[in-house]
């Protein structure tokens, strides 16, 4: 299964980025920013697929990022885990197993940690789309590697916040995901 593969590689990368090496793998907020650009696209696709009310869909699409400052990777990871929980709610409704949140935010959280968790969320969301669409629906585009530079954790946080608000807005205004939850936890 795709997620098992993701977790294996994530575990390897987590080991490499561990304290024993005393060296961060060097993934930057720009790499994470690319992932959350794609996740926001999957969120909009999810709303498109599940909400019939075009007003709500338009409202979701029209939502823009807010300005944040002073955010740390741990803040980003905490909010990302919240979004992951929302996706798990949808996955459970689609008979997909929830993803495991293998990492918790802490003061030592790095952009690499956030990247690994975010790639898992992207895979989770694309898997949900695949499960809810036919083969004519293209998904490869959600994995496009964007090239961003000089993004900060606050910039990434803004994108994560946007995805969270979009999902929450859809949940609140469309009756989507009547059973709220945040996955199975750690």
């Amino acid at each position: 299964m795709a997620l098992a593969r993701v977790l294996l590689i994530a575990a390897t990368l987590a080991m490499l980025s561990g304290k024993a090496w005393a060296l961060d793998l060097g993934l930057t907020p720009s790499h994470v920013y690319s992932l959350w650009t794609n996740i926001n696209r999957t969120v909009i696709e999810c709303v498109n697929l599940t909400v019939k009310d075009t007003t709500i869909v338009s409202g979701v699409k029209a939502m823009a990022t807010k300005k944040f400052t002073g955010k740390k990777p741990a803040d980003v990871l905490a909010l990302a885990l919240h979004v992951e929980g929302l996706w798990n709610t949808l996955r459970i409704q689609s008979d997909l197993p929830p993803t495991l949140q293998a990492i918790a935010p802490e003061s030592m959280t790095t952009p690499t940690d956030v990247y690994l968790e975010s790639s898992k969320i992207l895979a989770s969301s694309v898997e949900w789309i695949i499960g809810n669409t036919d083969s004519s629906h293209l998904v490869a585009g959600y994995f496009v590697r964007h090239t961003f530079k000089d993004k900060t954790p606050s910039d990434v946080y803004a994108l994560v916040d946007l995805a969270q608000r979009r999902m929450q807005f859809a949940f609140d205004h469309s009756g989507l995901a009547t059973q709220s939850g945040e996955g199975s936890g750690q």
Binding site: V6, L13, L16, G26, H31, Y115, A123, V139, F143
Partner: peptide, 25 residues
């Protein structure tokens, strides 16, 4: 022609990207 392989291959690309970045660093 199964879309789950799109998911797998794309995730592999993401992780390979991370490994290459780490290597470059």
């Amino acid at each position: 022609q199964d879309r789950k392989y799109i998911l797998k291959a794309s995730l592999d690309i993401l992780n390979i990207t991370a490994l290459l970045t780490s290597y470059q660093n």
